[in-house]
Design a protein around this nucleic acid. Sequence first.
DNA 1: CGGATATCAGACCTACTGACATTG
DNA 2: CCAATGTCAGTATGTCTGATATCC
Lengths: 145, 145
Amino acid sequence: MTEPLPRDIARRFPRAMVRLRARLRAESEPSDMRWTWSQISTLNRIAEEGPTTVSALAVAEHVRPQSMAETVAALRREGLVTAKSDPTDGRKSLMSVTPAGRKLLMNIRPIREAWLEAAIEQHLTPAERRTLLEAADLMERLADS
Amino acid sequence: MTEPLPRDIARRFPRAMVRLRARLRAESEPSDMRWTWSQISTLNRIAEEGPTTVSALAVAEHVRPQSMAETVAALRREGLVTAKSDPTDGRKSLMSVTPAGRKLLMNIRPIREAWLEAAIEQHLTPAERRTLLEAADLMERLADS
DNA sequence: CGGATATCAGACCTACTGACATTG
DNA sequence: CCAATGTCAGTATGTCTGATATCC
């Protein structure tokens, strides 16, 4: 195989994301909408990085603080995340995952993820599955580069 | 390498998409917003599949006809797509790409794509680039499965 | 006072659902 | 009359920008 040009990848990859994302949305049902991917990604981030602030989360997830505040507010309303004041800095409010939040991260499998899992099971070879998993790593690396 | 479980991929891949998508959005500027990815993906689809209807596009892109109608309306407002009545079926309105639309598809490279291209260039090895390009194919295959 | 953090208010984008007119 | 196509209206979500209060 010849070496693919970064330009070609940059053109085709977003299109693939648009289409897979649309299909995932189409396969979801209103009940799945209880947790959005932004929420799950953020919950994962809080779980990984320990008590942290909305501002730090906003930087990590590449959104504005106001946007992240809304995502975190939803997680708090659902009891997945708790906040406590930073004793050393009165401006900061430190977010932590609650036991309910950890349990959710362990058990979550909404319908659209189940659909994706089934699609992978049915349509991809083991080699192709490895490719997809490696690509997930590369995507996160690019996102944080 | 052991065989990755579809379930693990189904968990991690959406998270990678959320994060890369957010970074791409963060790297875009208002001027890029002239064309959304949904519009470009749809324009590509019309170019590939020749004159076609809004309903058929909606099925292909996995969105509701009303949503696709709005996307196509934007493309028509910008002169990238033209509509003509189907002479054999008065209900149908057939969409085609205009010369301006084809020119755009040839030349488009908004800032966020340029950012992605540069990030791939700087941070990924040739083997990793191949992985990403293969993943794009797999993602489209899953989307249409 | 300047910088960082958080929050409130308003806007927009893109998807959705529901209702309806037109055509086959 | 029913199915398919397209359009209009209203809603929800997640993002944005701008303005403001609080704390270091």
